[in-house]
């Protein structure tokens, strides 16, 4: 009896150590890989690398246009997805009752989050470019302007891809606004919309911001959906155009142009360039930039959410 118990103890201790070991193995592998990227990448990193354009068959120069494209695409994406996601969450949390229909919507949110990213690419091609874009061209008689791969459609497609992130973050934020604050507002004679606008949304703002940051980070890291939605190997010019009203002109992002994209740029350099070994230092540099970008965004979001939860915990 005693012996049996001892044996179980030993087996248990070993099993627990295995679990621990697995975890630390994982941590070590990750740290090794990340430090490899860091060490190799940091050697090419400079301000010039960040703003210069690729030169000499991508073996020299920098990633300026790719960073520009990434910022342009994700900002446009935010313009599409944040209002949509926030409104959607407001409906689900503030208006909708628990019906069959709302349960289907909630299931759809999870399912949308699980659709493979390459399928979003097909969807963007079939829906945004060939359906919306082609029809826009027909209606506006713009020839072939909208019905082709472009920054606009890449942003729109990524907006659909990150929509669940925005909805879920906003839902969590709205849900954490105490019911008593809503009661107080109604008790003072506010309508539903006044209550949402004046009491609920201001308190949910940090949560919405968290969702937005997570969405940007996710969008900036995606490659597969934009492969055939306008991401380009190399473009001699930035996708910008002058918008003139009378004599006054400003330079804006031209959403109907193709664009370079940091994540896509890494893929291209690593697999398609004529001399991958020569571009290797630049590949590490680009990867380091992308990793730092997504980490900074995610850390900001995590810290934000942590503080937000703590504040709400105190109320």
């Amino acid at each position: 009896m005693e012996l049996k118990k001892r044996k179980q103890d030993i087996a248990g201790t070993i099993s627990l150590s295995v679990v621990r070991l697995m975890f630390f193995f994982l941590v070590v592998v990750l740290i090794l890989l990340l430090s490899k990227i860091f060490i190799e990448g940091v050697s090419v990193l400079s301000l010039n690398f960040l703003i210069d354009e690729p030169r000499n068959n991508m073996t020299e120069g920098g990633i300026g246009p790719a960073i520009f494209g990434t910022i342009a695409v994700t900002l446009l994406m935010v313009l599409f997805t944040v209002p949509l996601g926030v409104f959607s969450a407001i409906y689900l949390n503030e208006y909708a009752k628990d019906t069959f229909f709302t349960r289907i919507i909630r299931t759809s949110i999870n399912n949308l989050a699980g659709v493979p990213s390459i399928v979003f690419g097909l969807f963007g091609l079939g829906f945004f470019i060939l359906f919306i874009g082609k029809n826009l061209d027909n209606i506006l008689e713009t020839g072939l302007l909208f019905g082709q791969p472009a920054l606009l459609w890449a942003s729109a497609t990524l907006a659909v891809l990150v929509l669940p992130i925005v909805i879920v973050s906003t839902l969590e934020a709205l849900n954490s606004v105490p019911k008593s604050h809503r009661d107080a507002s109604y008790g003072l004679g506010a309508t539903k919309w006044q209550t949402i606008k004046n009491v609920v949304l201001p308190q949910a703002r940090p949560g919405i911001l968290t969702g937005t940051i997570l969405a940007i980070s996710r969008g900036a890291g995606e490659t597969a959906p934009i492969l055939f939605l306008g991401a380009a190997f190399f473009l001699p010019n930035l996708p910008v155009a002058d918008l003139c009203i009378g004599d006054y002109c400003i330079t804006i992002v031209n959403p109907t142009e193709q664009f370079m994209y940091l994540a896509y740029h890494i893929f291209i350099m690593a697999t398609q360039s004529s001399n991958p070994t020569q571009t290797l230092p630049l590949q590490y540099g680009s990867t380091l930039v992308l990793i730092v970008l997504t980490f900074l965004l995610n850390i900001t979001a995590i810290v934000f959410r942590y503080r937000f939860r703590k504040i709400l915990g105190r109320l």
Binding site: P178, H181, D183, G187, L188, G189, A190, Q194, N198
Partner: peptide
């Protein structure tokens, strides 16, 4: 509800200033 005011069991002031809390109703 404007004519029948309500005070709740636990204080449910909005996380705003004292002033903003009072003028919330009048502003509506």
């Amino acid at each position: 509800r404007k004519n029948v005011g309500m005070v709740f069991q636990k204080s449910n002031l909005f996380p705003k200033t004292v002033y903003e809390n009072i003028v919330y109703g009048p502003r509506l």
